[in-house]
Computed example of a mutant assay.
Amino acid sequence: MSESSSTPTPLGAFLRDRRARMDPASFGFGGRRRTPGLRREEVAQRANISPTWYTWLEQGRGGAPSSDVLDRLANGLMLTAPEREHLFLLALGRPPAMKYSRPDHVTPRLQRVLDALPTSPAIIKTATWDVIAWNTAATRLLTDYSKLRREERNVLRLIFTNSVTRAAQDDWWNIARYVVGAFRADAARAGAGAEINAIVDELSRISPEFESLWRENDVAAHADGMKRLRHPEHGLIELEFSVFAVEGRPDLGMLVYNPATPDSARRVAELLSAQNDGSANP
Rank of each mutant, 00 (worst) to 15 (best):
E211P: 00
G225I: 09
A13W: 11
S6R: 14
L87N: 09
E152R: 04
V43H: 07
N258K: 12
A91M: 04
Y100E: 00
E233L: 10
P208W: 14
R157H: 09
F241R: 05
P36Q: 12
D218Q: 09
A194Y: 14
E85Q: 11
R84K: 15
R249W: 11
T143N: 10
M78N: 14
A137T: 03
L73F: 12
D201I: 01
G76K: 04
A221S: 11
D71H: 05
L156K: 13
S264L: 05
A185V: 07
E42Q: 11
L90Q: 01
A220N: 09
L255R: 02
T55K: 00
L252W: 06
L271N: 11
R61W: 07
R184Q: 02
F88Y: 01
R18V: 02
F244H: 12
S242W: 03
P10T: 07
R19G: 06
R32G: 03
W172E: 08
P24S: 04
G12Q: 11
E58M: 03
M1F: 10
A167K: 12
W134N: 04
A122F: 11
L272F: 01
L79W: 07
E247T: 04
N135E: 09
R153N: 15
A47Y: 13
L90G: 00
V164G: 08
A245C: 00
L142N: 11
S66C: 01
A245R: 09
A127W: 03
P24M: 00
G30Q: 10
V106G: 03
R94D: 09
A265K: 13
R39I: 13
V179N: 15
W172M: 08
W214H: 10
D224G: 12
A74C: 12
L79F: 08
E152L: 01
W53A: 01
P10E: 09
I132R: 11
P51W: 07
A187N: 14
M78H: 05
E202I: 05
S264N: 03
A187C: 08
D23C: 02
P108A: 05
G31H: 01
W53E: 01
Y178M: 12
G253F: 04
L15K: 05
K125Q: 06
W173H: 14
A176P: 02
A74K: 06
R32N: 02
M254Y: 06
